[in-house]
Every structure is written in C-alpha cells, then in structure tokens.
C-alpha cells in the first residue's frame, strides 16, 4: 500500500505523515515551504510544489503524480485549500471521498473512518471505498523518520485565476495542543481590551490563552492560531477554563480531550455547563479576580 499526502499547513503535514507511515508507504506532495519540515518525518519521496496557492493548480499536479505512480490513497490535510483540492480531485479522478476524518483503519479493500457529524454533536463511524480523504489536524503526534526523505521539485501549471496580492498572516507561536492548562475566552469577554483582565488568571495557573471562533476569527481579539473547536485546535489540557463561552457544539468538539473543564458563564442555561466538570454562574469580570485570589490563597 502506498499513499500520497498533501497539506499546506506544516503541523498537519507532519502529523499526517507520521500517522500514515505506520500503516503504509508514504510520499508527500507539499508546498516548498512545508517540504523541508516534513522531510524529518517522511522517508519517502517529497515532491515540492513551487507555485502552490490555488486549488486548481494543486489539484492538477496531485492528479498527475497520482496517475504516474499508482497510489492507493490520497490524504489531504483538512485546511481551506485541502478541502477544495479534495472536491476537485474527486471529480478529476472519479474517486470517492471520506471527509474530515479523525481516525483511519484499513479493512481489506475498504477503510473504516470516523468523523464528527451534526456540527460536532455526534461521531459517525463508516466503512467506504474512499480513496481520497481529508484528515483533521490532531490525528497523531509528529514522529521523526529513520531517514530523511528525498526532496525533488515538481512543476505546476499556472492557476486559471489571477493573483492580485497576497499577505502572510502573522505566524503564531502558541502550541495549544501541548498546553497543560488553557484559559479560553468567548464573546462574553466583550472586547479586545478586556483580555488583559483575564491575564492574571492565566498567569496564576501558567496557562495558555485561547478563544472561541468569534473571538479569534471574526473580531481578531486573539490570533487565529488560538481558536479552539471543530475548525480550530483540538486541545487536551489537564484543565480547560472557559470564560464567557456559550458552549456551542462546534466549540465543544475541540475540548473533548480536556481532563477537567471549568466554565464561567452568566447564563445558567448556557450549554457549556452540560460539558463542564465545574461551573460558576455569574459575571466573569467579578468571578475571575476572586478566583485568582482564591488560587493564590
């Protein structure tokens, strides 16, 4: 068995390569910027793409590589581009897709996979003949490979869409997946300045600060790499402290691995209390300073 892996996100690429190397032979096809990092985890061929932003041109080069070398599977990291490529590739190659998987097992000529459904409320386990799979980040810890992979360049056709401008996002420095305590804020924090008010709590517990999707993505009160949830980071700290987060299913999907969940919310019927070990009903701005005092006690 042999597979081809694509991801435009370094972390996800490393995770996928490490996970699937335990099951089959792995080659990668990744943007040039990812190739170097992934070579420490993949002893197979690493095809580096130079001109790699748009899904149509990425799809074309993956399809060509797939046809040339008879791969059994194509695994794509579930990123914005990865999902677009999966859709395009499935039409071009006429192959079935399993989307957003969180686990993978071979079962003869089929595979058994798991994914969240209903926005994260349930988990579907299914058996399919899928050959293209989008894989959620967090499937495995990156492991180093016995030998570094061979990097070679692949040429890509130009995209049919025209680039006007591009801007890199500020590179994040947090590693939420490894944090042992996380203090996470939701829309209940009210504004960006208020984040200062919960920092004493994060400091007191030596925790990382994270947030819900609106806080990170819509309002940019925190950087995007601090988003927890279905479309953000799946975290597994010893303790997850949720402040002013309602607990929508898409957020809960990211915190299920937490050992203990503490929730502070002024609405006693907020769904977060159904998913918490300890809950405090009240105004977070009153509760947080008291909590800090009690912790330092």
């Amino acid at each position: 068995m042999k597979c081809l892996i694509f991801s435009d996100a370094v972390d996800t690429a490393n995770q996928l390569v490490s996970f699937f190397s335990g099951i089959m032979e792995v080659d990668c096809i990744v943007p040039e910027a990812v190739a170097k990092a992934v070579s420490a985890h993949c002893s197979g061929n690493i095809f580096a793409m130079k001109e790699s932003v748009f899904p149509d041109s990425i799809t074309a080069v993956i399809a060509k590589t797939y046809r040339n070398s008879k791969y059994d599977y194509v695994f794509l990291g579930s990123t914005a581009i990865g999902r677009d490529v999966a859709g395009m590739l499935s039409v071009d190659l006429g192959l079935n897709v399993a989307a957003e998987i969180t686990s993978f097992k071979l079962d003869g000529s089929s595979c058994v996979t798991k994914r969240y459904f209903y926005g994260g409320k349930t988990v579907i386990e299914e058996s399919s003949n899928a050959r293209i799979l989008t894989v959620m980040p967090g499937i495995a810890e990156p492991k180093s490979a016995p030998a570094a992979g061979k990097i070679s360049e692949v040429s890509q056709e130009a995209s049919q869409v025209t680039m006007v401008s591009r801007e890199s996002k500020a590179a994040g420095s947090v590693d939420l997946e490894k944090a042992s305590i996380i203090v996470s804020v939701g829309r209940g924090i009210g504004n960006k300045e208020n984040i200062e008010k919960i920092k004493p709590l994060a400091d007191a517990v030596h925790g990382e600060i994270a947030g819900s999707r609106p806080v990170c993505l819509d309002y940019h009160w925190l950087s995007e790499d601090r988003q927890v949830g279905l479309s953000g980071k799946k975290v597994k700290p010893k303790m997850y402290i949720a402040l002013g987060i309602s607990g929508q299913i898409q957020h809960i999907a990211g915190i299920r691995g937490s050992k203990i969940v503490v929730a502070v919310n002024k609405d006693k019927s907020a769904p977060i209390f159904e998913e918490a070990d300890y809950g405090l009903v009240g105004d977070l701005f009153q509760i947080v300073p008291k909590l800090v005092a009690a912790i330092k006690g």
């Binding site: 899904p55 149509d56 799809t59 579930s78 999902r83 677009d84 490529v85 999966a86 859709g87 395009m88 590739l89 499935s90 039409v91 071009d92 897709v97 989307a99 957003e100 459904f117 209903y118 926005g119 989008t134 279905l230 479309s231 898409q250």
Partner: peptide
C-alpha cells in the same frame, strides 16, 4: 463548509 456535515467538498466539486 456547511454547519452540520461540513464536508467542504461542494465548492471544489461544483467548480470542476
């Protein structure tokens, strides 16, 4: 990506 199944496959498929 739709909110309940969020496969995210439709944009790529429809375009192709």
């Amino acid at each position: 990506q739709s909110a309940e199944s969020y496969t995210g496959l439709l944009p790529g498929k429809i375009s192709r």
